[in-house]
Structures are given as structure tokens and as C-alpha cells.
Write a protein that binds this DNA or RNA. Structure first.
Lengths: 121, 121
DNA sequence: TTTGTAAATAGTAACTATTCCTATTTAATT
DNA sequence: AATTAAATAGGAATAGTTACTATTTACAAA
């Protein structure tokens, strides 16, 4: 893939925050560094970066957010303020049970634990 | 709340399928029974039905789907065909660990297990 | 170094899903 | 039957995302 300064800036923006930003936020941050960057460029590169495994997409209810942490990991979501917190909790369910009972072969998991963060309990 | 024939039809459509339909599918099914029903009416009533607890919203990646099963339950999602399968698997994680380590009070969980369904392995 | 080129971009138009608006209709009460 | 507030149909508006196209750019080969 050919180098692109725009793509590099977008990658840096996502990888230097833990706030799981949306495309729009990435766009407004990117504009601070490249004032005429196009929103289409942001969307296209978010897609590309996700495809090559540099970032991850998080579907947070009806919001699409991006995460520089590309490890499989799960999230805590505050029902008050919406903050998304990375965790390293392990998902443990009975894989054999799922295979036999539902005739389904698990590959990966996406878990959300919804509750109250330290600011809102 | 005042009775509405449209709302009742919409509820029946959702509660008589396990396909986790989208608003658009509900709309096209509803039109078979009420030919001039409005899409706005479908959206408004989906929201209302969710608020009064008659149905559940499922955020399936970038798709918003509806579920007549209002129990807390989790889903298997086929990465090939996208089919969503209800499960009664129990989510077990160390709640104490989350409380202490992340200073977060869990209330409910939303789990997706992604993999291959019986048609696609 | 120039030159050729395909890939990437900026800017804008188009599209899709959802919500909003308003005149009309309807459920429920009197 | 008359009243009234809630709900509806139909259409306009909005938001988020993707598509289009002329221009620019990275990079390879001469």
C-alpha cells in the first residue's frame, strides 16, 4: 500500500487516545493538522486501517467508534455518561456447550458490561 | 397509553419471529396488514414498545434489530450469513474483580459470540 | 532529475436510516 | 353525539456515511 500522510495522521490520532473516538471526532482532530483534509478521506482511511488491522471498530449501540487497541478485549460502558473503558477480563463460557447445543463454532467474542463508572454510582 | 391498532400489529410481527428483524422489514410486513401504514409510525412504535418493555433493541454491528424476547439473553452471530441466534448461556465474569479493578458497578451484560453457524462451517 | 502511472485526495453530490413536522383521524371520555 | 388529546399518514428534514470525479501525489523506471 502506498504511503499517505493523511492516513498516518488518522492512525496517530486514534492510537494516541483511549477515548474510542467517532469518525467525526477524528475528522475534527485531523483538521487541526491538515486543514483541508476531507471527511471522505477520514472515512476511507478508517476503513483501510481497520482492514489492515491497525485499528479496531467498536459498535457501541448506534455509535461507530474506533480503537487503537487491536488486541481482543472487552468493554465496560457507563449507562450514565457513556464512557467506554477497556478491560482485560477473560470471556469464559462453555464452548463445548455452544458447539453441541447450538451447533455453532465460536471464533471470537464481543462483550459489553453495562453499569456505573466511578463518577456515576 | 391509548390503544393503537398499528402498534398492536407491529408488536405481533416482532413477537412472532425469531429473525430479529430491522425496522424496514417490520415496515414491509406491517404494510401487508395495513396498506397505508407510515414508516414514521413504525419507528415511533418500535421506540414506544421498547420503552414499555414489550420488545428489545439489539445493536448488531451497524444494524438496529428488534427482538420479541425481552429476557436478558445473549446472541451467537454467524460471520458468514449474519444470522443471529438466541442463547440462554450465562455470562460469568468475576464481578468483584470488575468492581475493584475498574471501580465499576456492573448492571447488565450484552454478549455476542461470533463464529460459524451450522450452515457455514 | 524528469516522466509516467496508478493510488490517494479534496470537495461535493448522493444515499440511507431515522427523526421531525403538521394537518387529519381516532380512541376514549363525557 | 360532542369533546379532546393522542396517534397517524405523508412528507420534509437531518445525520452519518458512501460514491463520484477532477486534481494531486507517491513512487518506480528511464
Amino acid at each position: 500500500m502506498r504511503y499517505s500522510y493523511q492516513r498516518e495522521i488518522i492512525r496517530e490520532i486514534i492510537c494516541s487516545t483511549k477515548s474510542h473516538p467517532t469518525a467525526d471526532w477524528v475528522y475534527s482532530e485531523a483538521k487541526k493538522k491538515i486543514d483541508n483534509i476531507s471527511l471522505g478521506t477520514v472515512y476511507r482511511n478508517l476503513k483501510t486501517l481497520e482492514e489492515i488491522g491497525s485499528i479496531q471498530i467498536i459498535y457501541d449501540e448506534n455509535l461507530i467508534r474506533y480503537d487503537g487497541n487491536t488486541e481482543e478485549h472487552h468493554h465496560l460502558k457507563c449507562s450514565e455518561c457513556g464512557v467506554l473503558i477497556d478491560t482485560n477480563i477473560k470471556s469464559n463460557f462453555d464452548e463445548k456447550d455452544i458447539v453441541s447445543k447450538y451447533n455453532f463454532k465460536p471464533e471470537k467474542t464481543k462483550f459489553f458490561i453495562i453499569g456505573k463508572c466511578n463518577k456515576h454510582k
